[in-house]
Amino acid sequence: MTTFQPDFSLQTERQGGVVTIRVTGDLEYGVSDELVELVREELVPPAGRSGPRELRVDCGATRFVDSMGLSALLMLRRIADDAGVRLVLEHFPDALLRLMDMTGTLQYLTGTESAREAADPAPSPRAD
């Protein structure tokens, strides 16, 4: 059963080999599967085309993340790794940084060892 979440949305942008998904609202139990399914769809290329080389998930407009939302982010890591796609999570609200830090998932999801590093990352290298 899907719960109606009027303030939750996912927006997708494709540019070159990069797919960016912007998450807006509360990433929680009732909607976290939508994010996972969208990522699965985005990482499967249409026939005759190559898939993306990078998946960026912009969490800047995410207000709240519960345990199912965190589980969805962990699934994104597994899906991207299985597809050979670089996953970049970016623009974290403080509450999400604290949640990842407290649960020991920060380094796995962001590649950084501290919340400070994740909040203010160095610019990522551009792939040509």
Score class of each variant (00 low, 15 high):
116 R>A: 12
90 E>I: 07
101 D>Y: 09
89 L>N: 11
113 E>W: 07
113 E>V: 03
99 L>T: 11
99 L>N: 00
105 T>N: 11
114 S>K: 10
83 A>C: 12
108 Y>T: 12
105 T>D: 00
97 L>H: 07
112 T>S: 05
123 P>L: 04
110 T>D: 05
104 G>K: 11
106 L>G: 00
114 S>C: 03
127 A>H: 14
88 V>H: 00
98 R>Y: 06
115 A>V: 07
126 R>P: 06
92 F>M: 07
114 S>T: 15
109 L>Q: 03
113 E>Y: 08
115 A>M: 07
127 A>Q: 11
96 L>N: 04
127 A>Y: 04
123 P>R: 08
88 V>M: 00
113 E>G: 14
117 E>S: 08
125 P>Y: 02
91 H>W: 08
114 S>A: 02
110 T>Q: 06
91 H>A: 15
84 G>S: 14
117 E>V: 01
128 D>Q: 14
127 A>T: 11
87 L>W: 00
104 G>I: 06
100 M>Q: 09
116 R>L: 03
125 P>H: 06
114 S>V: 09
87 L>Y: 01
106 L>E: 03
90 E>Y: 01
85 V>G: 14
99 L>E: 03
88 V>R: 02
119 A>L: 07
116 R>P: 01
115 A>R: 13
110 T>L: 03
122 A>E: 15
121 P>A: 02
91 H>Q: 12
92 F>L: 10
97 L>A: 05
97 L>D: 10
85 V>D: 10
116 R>G: 03
121 P>Q: 09
91 H>R: 15
106 L>I: 03
99 L>G: 03
113 E>M: 10
118 A>T: 11
86 R>E: 09
91 H>T: 06
112 T>F: 15
109 L>I: 05
125 P>E: 13
116 R>H: 07
119 A>I: 08
82 D>Q: 15
93 P>A: 12
107 Q>D: 10
117 E>F: 00
100 M>D: 01
103 T>S: 15
93 P>S: 05
117 E>T: 09
116 R>K: 04
81 D>N: 12
94 D>T: 12
84 G>M: 11
128 D>T: 08
127 A>K: 09
99 L>H: 05
84 G>K: 14
123 P>I: 03
83 A>Q: 15
89 L>P: 03
85 V>Y: 15
119 A>W: 04
114 S>D: 00
121 P>K: 03
101 D>L: 06
127 A>N: 09
119 A>V: 04
124 S>N: 00
95 A>T: 15
116 R>V: 08
82 D>G: 14
89 L>C: 11
124 S>C: 04
108 Y>E: 12
81 D>P: 00
110 T>K: 03
99 L>F: 07
109 L>A: 05
93 P>N: 15
125 P>F: 06
96 L>V: 14
111 G>Q: 04
104 G>T: 06
123 P>M: 01
124 S>T: 06
128 D>M: 09
82 D>T: 13
121 P>G: 01
106 L>D: 00
122 A>N: 03
